[in-house]
Design a protein around this nucleic acid. Structure first.
Length: 448
DNA sequence: GCATGATCATGC
DNA sequence: GCATGATCATGC
């Protein structure tokens, strides 16, 4: 360890550490430390180590304690990407690895997650391909304490993860299980497995993480983009809104239940919102949740995918659920874990289920949150690999069909059959998209 | 009745 | 103009 007297900050003081950290704001490590430092590390996750070692002058550790233990402050660097509308999070923020054999024994307050990450020193930098870590510019540097409303949801999330571990189901964890705090895979997927409680089945190594969309909220707040965050209204303005022991999801479902059995028009009348076109059911949902405008803040931050489901009188589900187009060129460069289809299927879903009555009027039947179980995700991985391989080979005739019963399928979707998209070989092919099979959705909706 | 192909409505 | 969410149409 360095002689603490020489440190340019007071390691016992959060304020001092944060203030010193801000010396990097708008700058790169090279600019601040001089041009003669060598790139000592390269690759993923190394910028954080460089900041710790070169700027804060302590040796990086993999302690269960925060990086600045005396000040209970955990340092995290995280990349930003430029999109048309401004800066956004490039990826999830990965926190500490979950010890499946220990974490479940603890309360939230004693948990490894909370001990290490209760207070974060966030350092967002602008990601650039092919640029050395020491040449990346820091754009946002701030202390982050979770607001009480967010912390409530994070506690619910943590509990949900713990419940699975307690039940010997760590191998079934998925990012789609939770809202803000997720159990994301960490390490090389095939080889990084760990033993878990209560069963011999090995589970993928996972770490607590904050979802990328949640970080966006921090980023917009930090950049003073109030106009963007104000478009979003939270369902829960204050944690005192919760009934005792109620989770966020239970709270949301409770708000919908008085409208079960009512038609779309009836609900629209109650909230005086005029005619609601099909495909705009989220307007109804926002109204029911008391959200002015169109964006439900918690759903945005958790990246919840809201979908309408229509059941026939009989309870049958007529239609499969469509998603985005398959980009024939882009998919060739994708890996499963970072692919579009994987990112959709690991989201948390919010299903708004309607059913036709005797007069063919759609009535709200129920709402539910859902995340795809890990076993199913494995099946969709096979589906995706098969689809990618066929696109690679230029075989557009034999995609997996709904009758193959592989949870999802490929089907045309375009303006009409002459709506084409170029393939890597330069040939034009009809546009197609990913679908979730109707039968699969039906099972989910009817199981609860 | 279901699988599959095809297309509509809307908003950015 | 186009992607997306959603639904229609047809034939087996």
């Amino acid at each position: 360890m360095m002689n603490q007297n020489k440190l340019p900050y007071d390691k016992n003081s959060r304020a001092s550490i944060v203030k010193y950290a801000k010396g990097l704001l708008g700058k790169t490590l090279r600019q601040v430390l001089g041009g003669n430092i060598k790139q000592q590390y390269s690759g993923k996750g190394k910028l954080g180590q460089l900041v710790e070692k070169l700027y804060f002058q302590y040796e990086p550790n993999s302690d269960s304690l925060p990086d600045f233990p005396e000040a209970s402050l955990e340092l995290k660097t995280s990349p930003l990407k430029q999109i048309r509308k401004g800066l956004r999070s490039k990826e999830r923020l990965v926190l500490n690895i979950i010890d499946y054999l220990q974490e479940y024994k603890k309360t939230f307050e004693q948990s490894s997650f909370w001990k290490k990450n209760a207070c974060l020193l966030l350092m967002f930098y602008i990601h650039e391909d092919g640029v050395l870590d020491i040449d990346l510019m820091f754009r946002i540097i701030r202390q982050w304490d979770f607001p009480p409303e967010d912390l409530k949801i994070i506690k619910d999330d943590w509990q949900k993860i713990i419940d699975k571990i307690k039940n010997g189901k760590a191998h079934e964890l998925s990012e789609g299980d939770t809202l803000y705090l997720a159990a994301c895979t960490k390490g090389k997927n095939k080889t990084s497995v760990r033993s878990q409680f209560g069963t011999e089945i090995l589970a993928k190594q996972r770490a607590f993480s904050l979802k990328s969309k949640y970080l966006n909220f921090i980023i917009l707040d930090s950049l003073g983009k109030a106009e963007t965050t104000q478009e979003m209204t939270p369902v829960v303005k204050n944690i005192s809104d919760y009934a005792r022991q109620e989770t966020y999801e239970e709270h949301v479902i409770k708000k919908f239940s008085p409208y079960y059995g009512k038609s779309v028009d009836e609900i629209a009348q109650i909230f005086k919102i005029g005619t609601v076109s099909k495909g705009k059911i989220y307007i109804l949902a926002a109204a029911i949740l008391g959200v002015k405008g169109r964006k439900i803040a918690e759903f945005e931050k958790a990246d919840v995918e809201m979908k309408t489901i229509r059941l026939e009188k009989s309870g049958a589900l007529k239609e499969s659920m469509s998603f985005a187009q398959i980009k024939y060129k882009e998919i060739l460069d994708e890996k499963w874990e970072t692919s579009y289809w994987h990112s959709v299927l690991t989201k948390r879903f919010f299903f708004v289920v309607f059913q036709k009555d005797g007069q063919d009027v759609l009535r709200l039947k129920k709402v539910m949150f859902w995340g795809m179980p890990a076993q199913d995700l494995e099946i969709t991985k096979k589906f995706w690999n098969d689809t990618k391989r066929k696109i690679e080979e230029g075989d557009f005739e034999h995609f997996i069909k709904i009758s193959d019963n592989k949870i999802c399928h490929v089907r045309p979707k375009g303006r009409d059959s002459s709506d084409l998209m170029p393939t890597a070989s330069g040939r034009m092919e009809g546009k197609r998209c990913y679908w979730l099979n109707a039968l699969y959705i039906k099972k989910i909706v009817l199981q609860e």
